[in-house]
Design a protein around this nucleic acid. Structure first.
Lengths: 230, 230
DNA sequence: AACACTTGACTTGTATGGTAGTAGGTTAGT
DNA sequence: ACTAACCTACTACCATACAAGTCAAGTGTT
């Protein structure tokens, strides 16, 4: 007898809709739910011990973020990855973050630079095969940049874009070239600290392109996870 | 007796949830529903002759887009405008569209330039006090740029940002300086046609800043529509 | 064998009842 | 007159039942 009546998964004190959303979102990003996989309002509701309604609302949010695809009367599926769409979202992220670092470099606060360098030290400590650990620090780094520029809406867009990109990173078989990424983080900080807007901008543009170098390889080795209509 | 039982407003063939979303979104952007105004699932459902559920889902989508604010057990309100948040979203739009025009200017297709110039002629024809007419052409213009760059996701972000900015433009009492805006459109096209990335970028950045020149004035004259926690 | 049809088990979409929480006005108590 | 408790009328949230569409397997017919 294993969980004929599954335990309550969601906590009290917060609406269950957003909770379901976060749970599913996390599982999709971390490739626990694979691209192409079929979901179902009823199944998810049962496994989380909630009704269909909050699950449905979570599905809607996920579909707006592009993580699932809802086909009326047919089913809901984790959206397959497509090289074109990943490059498309990366383009948006690069544009936003390029302008963000220009703002930060234009008036580099000493505390900000110190905080970024502190984070850099943390990043060097993390093991090269601890994806989750590094990605958490990476997220913190980029969030700190956005916060330093005082752009909260910009960050919310980046968060959404980052989800799509992180999904790819979780599928990479080899390490994430963490060493190189950290070096690039350092170049960004150097540019900011020197007040050199253009240098900082070029550094982060290069950085954001580097992240997806493994994409073509993944598209070949795991073609079943990719949209083949391109 | 006026509309004791209101007529069916939504059409068949498409789910009502998205329809309700579009209807409310339009009414909010065009300032028919004013910032701060109270909404209600039940009321909206009754007035549209649908059930509360699709309305609720529309509210959720609107709240993600930042057009309404849902306070659990308290009510749903059209989000008030705030100078800071409008500038925040404008920043994102500028960053994205700047990179878009650089892409387009980097490889300017003759048909694209011709299409843009054709649209420019249309814009000159529209009356200076026909807000809706001009805004539709303006949206087409910017969409054409995004499409020419092949960035569909970028456009979806712009659409969301544009909603927030257009809401302000609908509150402007005077004309929208349409003449000046059209001149700037022309400068953008010129930069693209010349293959001058930097000129095109500077032109669109200036353009997107120009759009909100009336914001401070509106914030003074219609303070009740603005968030006062800033 | 091949094709058209039916049937049934799915899917998401919509409507509705009930629950818990909030806010404001009213009434009872001091 | 003032305060505190209550009470009513709302709100969004959740659960459940029903409706409508899709798809595939199976069946009957040609």
């Amino acid at each position: 007898m294993q969980n004929a009546r599954p335990a309550k998964v969601v906590a009290m004190g917060e609406s269950v809709g957003p909770q379901v959303y976060r749970i599913l979102r996390e599982r999709i990003i971390q490739a626990e739910l694979l691209p192409g996989e079929r979901l179902s309002e009823s199944d998810a509701a049962k496994s989380l011990s909630v009704s269909r309604q909050p699950v449905r609302e979570a599905f809607i949010k996920l579909s707006e973020e592009g993580l699932v695809q809802v086909l009326p009367q047919r089913g809901t599926f984790v959206t397959k990855i497509s090289v074109a769409s990943v490059m498309d979202v990366r383009f948006v992220r690069e544009a936003i973050e390029a302008d963000i670092v220009r703002v930060v470099a234009g008036d580099p606060a000493a505390e900000t630079v110190a905080e970024l360098r502190r984070q850099l030290a943390e990043q060097r400590k993390v093991s090269h095969d601890d994806r989750t650990g590094f990605l958490r620090l990476d997220e913190l780094f980029h969030h700190t940049l956005a916060a330093a520029a005082g752009k909260s809406y910009a960050w919310s867009v980046i968060e959404s874009v980052k989800a799509q990109m992180d999904r790819v990173r979780f599928l990479s078989v080899d390490d994430l070239h963490i060493g190189r990424l950290i070096e690039q983080h350092e170049k960004i900080i150097d540019g900011i600290a020197a007040g050199d807007k253009t240098a900082a901008e070029e550094a982060i543009r290069l950085h954001l392109r580097e992240i997806l170098t493994s994409l073509p390889e993944i598209a070949r080795s795991r073609a079943e996870l990719f949209d083949d209509t391109e």
